[in-house]
Design a protein around this nucleic acid. Structure first.
Lengths: 327, 327
DNA sequence: ATGAAAGCGCTAACAG
DNA sequence: CTGTTAGCGCTTTCAT
């Protein structure tokens, strides 16, 4: 692959001029421009990003940190990020941390070593201190999960309100014994959604029973199944479940099916996220929709603005209760 | 962030020496090495990948081309690729083509512009000519889908055999009216699986009925639903379905549920891929498992070997029939 | 064993 | 409007 020098020689101009027409920065005579264009064409020349990156000390790459691409919640966010990034001349480096601190360290180094210009973190398990530290020198935004005390700009939804509304929906349906399948409460969203859950119960004079709150340690279908088994083994059994993730809800539904029990008659179930599969279950899952694509798109805009030195502000997006047949 | 020069000055050595200890290339006195290490430590120095990349003209990045991260079939492959890539000092650039030629062109340019050292293509919709063209100058391997006539090394499974076995499984169960839900047959895997389907039918003296072959144009749950509606509207209705993707099979299952028909009694259904939620359906889906993680892992090894100038050979991995309750 | 210096391909002052 | 030139940060001969 030829360099800018060869183009310059071929066109009989200086490298600076070639650079100018490539970036159409300052004005160049129409005549010289066409000469250069012709040379570029003839030599089949492509400017090297490597050289440009070194010179401008930017990579036009955005690091996207997430626990796992296998979680459908993230995939639509990723689409939003990528579409927006591309339209603004950036690309994304998808990084699965696997909730593994070592992996995380590798990726943090990537940003330190300037292989990416900024990071969008979607990983709730991320080491908050290291992230905050990194954010002092590097553009970072958080998507979905964020640090309450931190100063890192983020895009998210009102998790407490969403959970509150979901549970209220159950209550309005006449449910009085409502269980919660939650994630590990080291995650902010888990604490917030629990708060919303309890708030709704309290508001309607229902007791918050510790035995009806199940904390899963892994975000897997199986956790939902385990939760149902646990819930159903209790003396006083719940008749409805609010799951903080469709993954849990789908696992719960599955377990009900296995046990030959009916949803929603024997157990109403509501999930969270509106992942695509949530409409394929039997019955289709009532769930809280997050504007995932928009979350991604906005995150990308935020991080790019930040990279460009602009001020950015956190934003809270609207959620929506999608009522289907499982409640 | 300091440069190699500052470290050199701080340690009282030349930049060359610093470079040597960073890469521990040639021998450096223990004493100088420790002086340099100390300087690196004190200055909290990290070598810039940008500079190194320019110098060595490599990026240690691998482009991974796929239609959509939302398709669970790819997510596990990605995990395999990423784990292996990282262990060999590479990172991946995830690129969603969305089956969009324009997008594809952008990514092809990325490799031309040396932002990545090689590409793993998993996109069946990829422009074969352009890919072959690119492969003349750049390391490329194909994963899952590949070009029959091409010379690009690939890792895949024996699709025809897998389909044959799947259909044979149905036949052994006494099924005689077996439909096929296929993808667009512009894809090689679709043609191969159809061949396997027909081979099994012919071998057992069953007729291949054109009306029982449904070609979906999008890889979505809904296509599976549409297929069932179509199949069930026919005079002579099939009693079993072989779907070339779990996505289709799950959509088909869903439609059966909606219609109040039973699986496998009224319709046996078998899918393909063993995506994680194929076990969450009601009933759990019989499916053909592909060794997705290994496919990814091997692809990564292949492309890195190729980047390093080694010869690599195509490989065909084993599949496995997972019999569950939908057949 | 170490240092000096060239140069990877590019952009951006600065000068003309 | 265009050319000259100085680097961006690094690796790697070639000397010493």
């Amino acid at each position: 692959m030829g360099s800018i020098h060869e183009v310059a020689k071929h066109a009989g101009v200086s490298v600076a001029t070639v650079s100018r027409v490539i970036n159409n920065s300052t004005r160049v005579t129409e005549k010289t421009k066409s000469r250069v264009d012709k040379a570029i064409e003839e030599l089949n020349y492509e400017p090297s990003i490597l050289g440009r990156n070194l010179r401008t000390s930017e990579s036009k790459l955005i690091l996207v940190l997430l626990p796992s691409v296998a979680n459908p919640f993230y995939t639509e966010i990723i689409s939003g990020i990528e579409d927006t990034a591309i339209s603004r001349g950036y690309h994304i480096l998808l990084c699965e941390t696997d909730s593994n601190p070592e992996r995380e360290a590798i990726y943090f180094n990537l940003i330190r070593k300037h292989v990416a210009d900024g990071v969008i973190s979607m990983d709730p398990t991320v080491n908050k201190e290291r992230l905050a530290e990194l954010s002092a020198d590097h553009p970072i935004v958080q998507c979905s999960e964020y640090d309450e005390e931190g100063t890192i700009p983020h895009v998210t939804i009102d998790n407490e309100l969403a959970a509150y509304q979901a549970v209220k929906h159950l209550i309005k349906l006449g449910q009085e014994r409502i269980a919660l399948i939650n994630s590990d409460e080291k995650f902010l969203y888990a604490r917030e959604r629990r708060r919303g859950y309890e708030k709704a119960l309290v508001e309607y004079g229902l007791a918050v029973k510790k035995e009806w709150i199940y904390n899963a340690n892994k975000l897997e279908f199986q956790s939902g199944q385990l939760a149902v088994r646990n819930l159903l083994s209790q003396g006083e059994k719940p008749t409805a479940i609010f799951a903080v993730s469709d993954i849990f809800a789908i696992g719960a539904l599955k377990e009900m099916n296995i046990k030959g029990m009916r949803v929603p008659e024997d157990m109403a179930i509501i999930g969270f996220d509106k992942v695509s599969f949530s409409n394929m279950t039997h019955p289709p899952l009532t769930t809280v929709a997050q504007p995932m694509y928009r979350m991604g798109s906005i995150s990308a805009d935020m991080i790019i603005n930040k990279i460009c030195g602009k001020e950015v502000e956190s934003i809270i997006l609207d959620h929506e209760l999608i009522i289907r047949d499982s409640t």
